[in-house]
């Protein structure tokens, strides 16, 4: 049986898909068979971030409706043999996803893969609900910014009540926090919520902090998961995050401002 991980946030544009692509690729780099499923029906983007947009023939909805097999719809990654993507449908609407259908597809994937990542759409409507419903683990992606933190708290409320584990009362979804677009310099100026602030409010364990980095945009431009840029800070931060998820202990990096000589002298 695979472990099912939902990557969610409530708010849009905080880095769910970037995180799904990087985290899934990271698990595959560690040798685990990993599938990443795009739940954003009508607004698919995981294929672009993974760089496989021209290889989409069949999608998630086709499989649910029996128009294609899971084997036909899975796009095998060209970089890593144990990584695959299931694209969302671009032409259907969200109602094409049904709880029964999603459950069936995730069961099928569970037979072949060690990890199935569900890349949730923004919001708390049907797509987001189904992305989290079957999850064993949740990765909540948050920016150090008021609306993102508030929405993440709302999503945590839903994870505690509207998932299969919650309904069956057979355990709970393990919640993990990833803070993205973190700018230590702005934090020390008092312009940005610190990771301690965000943790104080959300009070779930911190899995990783991804620094604001130009590499993230460069990678999405190219269709490369940012974790493959292992010289970049963001890539290394995702690498640490995956290691922590797998139980290794890694100190947080890129969370302190690098101080120059003058700043050290005058403080700030």
């Amino acid at each position: 049986m695979a472990r099912i991980i939902v990557v969610t946030s409530g708010k849009g544009g905080v880095g769910k898909t970037t995180t799904s692509a990087a985290f899934g690729t990271g698990l595959a780099l560690r040798g685990f068979k990993t599938a990443i499923v795009d739940f954003d029906v009508g607004l698919r983007n995981l294929d672009l971030i993974m760089g496989c947009e021209r290889r989409v023939v069949y999608d998630f909805v086709n499989v649910i409706q029996g128009e294609a097999t899971i084997g036909q719809a899975l796009i095998r990654d060209k970089r890593l043999p144990n990584l695959a993507v299931l694209a969302a449908s671009q032409t259907r609407d969200k109602d094409a996803l049904t709880q029964e259908g999603v459950g069936r597809v995730l069961d099928d994937l569970s037979r072949e893969f060690d990890y199935v990542l569900c890349d949730s759409p923004a919001g708390i409507e049907k797509g987001a609900h189904l992305a989290m419903y079957f999850a064993d683990d949740a990765i909540v992606v948050t920016n150090p910014e008021v609306s993102s933190v508030r929405d993440s708290d709302r999503v945590l409320g839903l994870l505690a009540s509207k998932t299969r584990h919650a309904e069956r009362q057979d355990g709970k979804v393990n919640e993990h926090l990833i803070i993205t677009r973190y700018a230590p310099k702005r934090v020390s100026k008092g312009e940005m919520l610190s990771l301690q602030d965000v943790q104080d409010i959300l009070s779930i364990p911190l899995l990783g902090v991804i620094p604001e980095s130009p590499t993230v945009l460069q990678c999405s431009n190219a269709g490369t998961p940012v974790i493959l840029e292992d010289k970049s800070e963001a890539g290394q931060a995702y690498g640490d995050t995956v290691a922590r998820y797998l139980g290794e202990s890694r100190p947080l990096r890129f969370v302190e401002e690098e101080k120059g000589f003058l700043r050290r002298l005058f403080g700030g």
């Binding site: 910014e145 008021v146 708290d153 709302r154 008092g190 919520l193 104080d200 409010i201 700030g268």
Partner: peptide, 28 residues
Amino acid sequence: GILSFFRSSSKSSASVAKERLQIVVAHQ
């Protein structure tokens, strides 16, 4: 440092953000 002494006179926007969030999240 010396600069932080002058800065501390006004509250930082981050601490305002944190206080507002604590209230709204508790209500939520």
